[in-house]
């Protein structure tokens, strides 16, 4: 019997199997954002309604919800009414939509279908803002506290209760 092979082999086997097993819990495509707790990257983008540009600095110390989306993405459209409704009801939180690779007409249509815009929607030409926020897929939503720090990032469409939870979090923090 070779004790070295036995012990060494079993250690290597155990480690390999453990590592492979640990992979089941994770989606290999979900990217964790390193921007959490950091200052949100600035942007200055044109509004889809033609009312000039909007930059992060103009949010004036309010907590903010920044939602990256597009009309060609089904889940984004499922999520849109949730956001619009929350924005209409939420006091003291600024919602911003940033649309990526899309056509203004499509966006206006989508908004109109849910009772019109409740917050500014910006067009991100060339994806500068999306890249600055490390967006890897749409929809993705970032929650900023009043000091402009990113508190959380949510990939995928938000449900109303999830959204309310995050809103409470950013209202309470950063003061």
């Amino acid at each position: 019997m070779k004790a070295g092979i036995l012990i060494g082999g079993l250690v290597v086997v155990g480690a390999l199997v453990a590592v492979l097993y640990s992979g089941f819990g994770h989606d290999p495509r979900a990217i964790k954002s390193p921007l959490i707790h950091r200052t949100a990257p600035d942007f200055s983008l044109e509004r889809v309604d033609g009312k000039g540009t909007l930059s992060l600095a103009q949010l004036e110390g309010k907590p903010a919800v920044i939602n990256f989306w597009a009309t060609w993405c089904d889940p984004c459209k499922e999520e849109l009414p949730v956001l619009l409704q929350a924005a209409r009801g939420a006091k003291g939180v600024q919602f911003v939509g940033i649309v990526y690779e899309d056509d203004p007409a499509n966006i206006e249509n989508a908004l109109a279908r849910h009772g019109g815009a409740a917050y500014p929607t910006l067009i991100d030409k060339g994806g500068h803002a999306a890249i600055a926020y490390g967006v890897a897929g749409v929809p993705e939503t970032f929650f900023l506290d009043r000091t402009g720090h990113i508190v959380a990032k949510f990939p995928g469409p938000l449900e109303p209760d999830e959204l309310q939870g995050y809103l409470a979090e950013i209202r309470g923090s950063g003061s």
Partner: peptide
């Protein structure tokens, strides 16, 4: 899971002109 589905569903969409 809804999350994974949606997010990555869109990823695949995004890479080219995607229509319903």
């Amino acid at each position: 899971e809804r999350r994974r589905r949606t997010n990555w569903a869109c990823l695949a969409w995004r890479s080219t002109a995607a229509v319903r």
